[in-house]
Design a protein around this nucleic acid. Sequence first.
DNA 1: AGTGATAGGTTAATCGGTTAACTGATTAAC
DNA 2: GTTAATCAGTTAACCGATTAACCTATCACT
Lengths: 350, 350
Amino acid sequence: MYGNQNIRKDIGNTALRNHHVTIKDIASSVGVSTATVSLALSGNSRISEETCRKIIMTAKKFGYSPSSAARSLAMNKSGNIALMIPNLDQIFQQSFFALAMNGVYDACLAKSYSLRLEVVSDSFVSSRRFIKLFQERSVDGMLYAGSTSADTYLNQLYELKYPFIFAGSYLNGSNLPFVTGDNKKGGALAVEHLLNSGRRKIAHIYGDFNITSSLDRFNGYRDALEKAGIVFDDSLTAPGGFSEKGGASAMKKLLKQKPDAVFAGNDIMAAGAIREIKRSGLSVPDDISVCGMDDIPLASAMSPALTTVKYDIYGIARRAAEKLIDIIEGRQPEQVKEFLPVELIKRDSC
Amino acid sequence: MYGNQNIRKDIGNTALRNHHVTIKDIASSVGVSTATVSLALSGNSRISEETCRKIIMTAKKFGYSPSSAARSLAMNKSGNIALMIPNLDQIFQQSFFALAMNGVYDACLAKSYSLRLEVVSDSFVSSRRFIKLFQERSVDGMLYAGSTSADTYLNQLYELKYPFIFAGSYLNGSNLPFVTGDNKKGGALAVEHLLNSGRRKIAHIYGDFNITSSLDRFNGYRDALEKAGIVFDDSLTAPGGFSEKGGASAMKKLLKQKPDAVFAGNDIMAAGAIREIKRSGLSVPDDISVCGMDDIPLASAMSPALTTVKYDIYGIARRAAEKLIDIIEGRQPEQVKEFLPVELIKRDSC
DNA sequence: AGTGATAGGTTAATCGGTTAACTGATTAAC
DNA sequence: GTTAATCAGTTAACCGATTAACCTATCACT
């Protein structure tokens, strides 16, 4: 039946080079049809144990892996998820691998190669290029880590019913599912801790209000103050743009108001704030308490060791991906809208 | 001819949902064969301008994107490249997105979804799971950013003639192509600069000799010393494990030898070294000069601003990806073995 | 008139799987 | 004794493209 096709004698002795083993090779070697091989390898009970064993053995011997393209085509399922990461400078000016990713991505883009990993700019989003990923069935779902100013365009995905989820942010007034950390609670935890240690004039350095997490952290800060009967004072807040430098220059501004504590919107800005406080001749925590947020590894190495609110990025991303897969596989009909808990890490800066 | 197939009336007015536009839809709408559509869309000159125009218009109107799976299958080319990143703790304890990637990856792995982005452990490499990516034709090539202790297994890829390249490292005694920075030259540049400013007793904090870049930086350091007629002194070197903490504790050890300068294998360790030098009551650069390597964004924000050797990760990664694509597309028969230039950035720590 | 190019397509094979429907033989149930 | 179910597969349609080989009409040239 399958004897008339190209039989490959070289299998098993020489390297296979660019000539891959297919299901037909297995079928003709075992003496069954390709359907049987396919069924056997997927564990279908219709095939006898004996035949099954032979097929599995042969497949192993030949080093057979099903063609992902053929499989995708037949099953109408790519098995891929797009991980979309916004191309924001402040994020990519941090580590080796973020830069490496960027470089690889740009080069591939120039040659029309695509990575499942998508480093997205505002124009990528606003040009709706992300929809093409679904149209060409390259991905079954999309996970968006972070947020851009263009992300309202993503709402289309909801109407088109393409599986999508935000990890670490969300879109106000949108139905798009998300898993993120409880940023508001985090801001409140920080402020409550500072209040408990006797501070009253608590300043805040925020990152950028276009980013939801920044805004939420700020809201947590303000609400906690008001709950404690302290009137919110706008002059005690300043933007730090998520960077060390930004944190320092924000602190410089805030020092004029003579605060006795600062809640920085992230640990990097907290580092800048501490540097500036020291530069001005004041001490942390004696003169000014500093509380950060995120709990990056550097936080415990800073001097003084930074008190911060732990934000479990790993857990958030992982949970979001799991939920996305649930959506793809039809196990999650309801909306996913989760705020995972945050935790205060007490160290020496308060 | 194609009239007997399922004709979709809903195209163009309602959302397409999970029902995708195929080449047949375009063909039957325009009144030509699918072959004509395929040829027209790929710009084949055999098709008249008139027909071509109509096809392109219709494809646009319908929002047609060719199925990537069907295309891969027909053309025997996935259009994908695997970006492999080692899962080393010291690398992933740095930034938001590195962590996010890790979380997404683990979740997908647990559900048999694959990212083109591969975060690889030693067992991933030693179990040869990377070969499967080629066997199932999921990727046309592989780019390995960084190095692990298991990377000798990758040599198999050379024999199997699967397109592969290292970015930012290489494998000693292997034929596998690579693009990396000139680490040896970098070490030499640092030492020469320190020598030129009058320093003689130059210590070195290295990362980890299992990593080629670390070893090369060290060799550059040693060779430059010997070239200047200074005998290499083993007690003036210590491992710092790439981390801030490690840099500080290495410095603590080295201070006993009373060096007048330190070349740290990366900027992070340089930061730790500076912290430790200050803690011991000495000044940078008055008592001890410090030179780092990499030129991370934080380097210019440090106090004093860090003199360092710039290592262009972005450029290396980009170049490597370009070369890989050349190999895939058959434009690069020769071995790629490139060391890209590095550059001394003079600031205030020397 | 005959020959050859050229233009503008079409036909059908192919890529490598999956799976609904069928087959033929044996066994079980009523 | 007839119908029904089960076993262990096979057949063939199908997924959605690409592309070599073929076809037909028109035009040019000798």
